[in-house]
Nucleic acid binder design. Structure first.
Length: 480
RNA sequence: CGGGGUGUAGCGCAGUUUGGCAAGCGCACCUGCUUUGGGAGCAGGGGGUCGGAGGUUCAAGUCCUCUCACCCCGACCA
């Protein structure tokens, strides 16, 4: 059978990537548009995926001593304004509440675009002594940013995320926290979402508004563009000074606290789609897939009940370890179901019909491979356990080879432009550190500095734009 | 926010150029029978007032004005 004939409802990934993306979101039943501009509804299947993602990350956050809390969605304008660089950065995309009921508000309230301000104001109340530190809080919340161009999951007016906010006694502790979170994010995104990332530091122009510096995780998408999958900010004492977060240290001296903040969002769902998806639709890593196994019974008149009974037995057996669905709908043919579950990215499909019954076996198909394999009934559970691990690894390895193939070292600006125009991906090139060069490159190629690697580069080279000598070898790419 | 495009049944579209008397097609949906190992077949059936508002006209899906939404390409951002 012709590969492209499997699913006709999804645009070609090769030819129309953004349409393909939208189609997958809708056909896999992850989300839908609503009457509110830029606001999507996350449908049960998509939300189950998000819940699994939340769970994976939440465990890691808690295991490192952080606690969850919830802060208000409304932030008085006066608070938001306290950190100048911060408010300047967010002002263009803040939604304001100016009226409550029939009454105009004395002071307008921002619908949180991020919570540094409100949390900072409370930390100021809560922190008095070095004994109060560190304070390690995370919140799962919705965020509103008035975006001009929106796309499901990747950029929506309202989105869901987690944001961690911590305060520490020393600069070093805050820096350790920032890096610890970066490592947690990397572990989570690579191990659970099977998305390989490049980590590093943001350039000054790309860092978080108000931060001292920002660490980031950057991932390659199926169209060669780069998605920022998470950030971890060392806020220095900027916010502590703006929000008056002070404490008395062991020497009875008054100090400003050192704070951090860090976040990942529902945007990662978009990342999963764009990294793992193929012409047939979604492909979900088992660790976060809402459904691990779907069983499709093959009905014929005489054997129908027998097949169904067996399928139910398998479901019970496999449910010990996995989320399993038995698709016993009568009004769809097996072929139709195969396509639907493939679109939805379920890692493994089992087919069971009269022939299998006779041989005590099932037909099994991995979403990442596609070929049919016979498995003896007695081997089913252990095989599935092995497969899930394999699929998880395979998705990661495939994504990693694509990433590696798409990191190109470049020393010649014309070649740089050519690569960005044709292949995209990451370009590793020397940069002198001058914002002018960064800006010019962006204007010419739409590529920005995605990150500056953390490991010290000893070799010197020439800035890709101006030719000045530099030891800073950075990653460029076109970002989402 | 600039340039382009699209809004007609749940989805995908035709019809709009040249206004005209019954608003159509495919898929989906409902009923029945036959089917079911890669999106089943036949027969019958239900559903839209043409994105919204205003206007022109004997008559508007079709012409005019305004407006909204979505998509694509840019500028701005997680």
């Amino acid at each position: 059978m012709n590969e492209t004939e499997f699913v006709k409802e999804i645009a070609s990934k090769e030819e129309a990537f953004s349409q393909w993306y939208i189609d997958v979101v809708k056909k896999a039943d992850l989300a839908d548009y609503t009457v509110v501009k830029g606001c999507m509804v996350i449908k049960p299947y998509g939300y189950a995926l998000w819940e699994n993602m939340q769970h994976c990350l939440d465990q890691r956050i808690k295991a490192t001593g952080h606690k969850n809390a919830y802060f208000p969605i409304f932030i008085p304008e006066s608070l938001l304004k306290k950190e100048a660089e911060h408010v300047a950065g967010f002002a263009p995309e803040v939604a304001w509440v100016t009226q409550g009921g029939n009454q105009k508000l004395e002071e307008r309230l921002a619908v949180r675009p991020t919570s540094e301000a409100i949390i900072g104001s409370l930390y100021s109340k809560w922190i008095h002594s070095w004994r109060d530190l560190p304070i390690l809080i995370n919140q799962w919340a919705n965020i509103v940013r008035w975006e001009k161009v929106t796309r499901p999951f990747l950029r929506t007016t309202e989105f869901l995320w987690q944001e961690g906010h911590t305060a520490h006694q020393t600069q070093q502790e805050a820096e350790e926290e920032t890096l610890k979170i970066l490592a947690i994010y990397k572990d989570y995104i690579e191990k659970d979402l099977a998305i390989p990332v490049i980590i590093g530091k943001k350039s000054n122009t790309e860092k978080f508004a108000g931060a001292m510096h920002t660490y980031t995780l950057e991932a390659l998408m199926g169209d060669g563009k780069i998605l920022q999958t998470g950030t971890s900010h060392n806020l220095g004492q900027n916010f502590a000074k703006a929000f008056d977060i002070r404490f008395l240290d062991e020497n009875q001296e008054e100090q400003f606290a050192w704070t951090t903040s860090w976040g990942t969002s529902t945007r990662l769902v978009g990342g999963i789609i764009m990294v793992h998806g193929d012409e047939r639709g979604l492909k979900l890593p088992p660790k976060v897939a809402p459904l691990h196994i779907v069983i499709v019974p093959i009905f014929f008149d005489q054997s129908k009940q027998e097949v169904l009974n067996k399928a139910q037995q398998y479901k019970i057996l496999l449910s010990e370890k996995f989320n399993v669905e038995l698709d016993d709908r009568d009004n769809y043919t097996p072929g139709w179901k195969f396509n639907e579950w493939e679109m939805k990215g379920v890692p493994v499909r089992l087919e069971i019909g009269p022939r299998d019954l006779a041989h005590n076996q099932v037909v099994a198909v991995r979403r990442d491979k596609g070929n049919k394999v016979m498995i003896a009934e007695s081997e089913l559970l252990p095989t599935m356990e092995r497969w899930m691990t394999d699929i998880q690894n395979n998705l990661y390895m495939q994504a990693r080879s694509r990433l590696e193939e798409n990191i190109r070292f470049c020393e010649n600006y014309d070649q740089f432009k050519e690569i960005m125009a044709e292949k995209r991906g990451f370009i590793k090139a020397y940069w002198c550190g001058n914002e002018k060069c960064e800006e010019e490159i962006k204007r010419d190629t739409k590529a920005t500095i995605r990150c500056i690697p953390l490991d010290e580069n000893k070799e010197k080279g020439k800035c890709i734009f101006c030719g000045a000598e530099s030891s800073s070898l950075v990653f460029f790419g076109r970002a989402y």
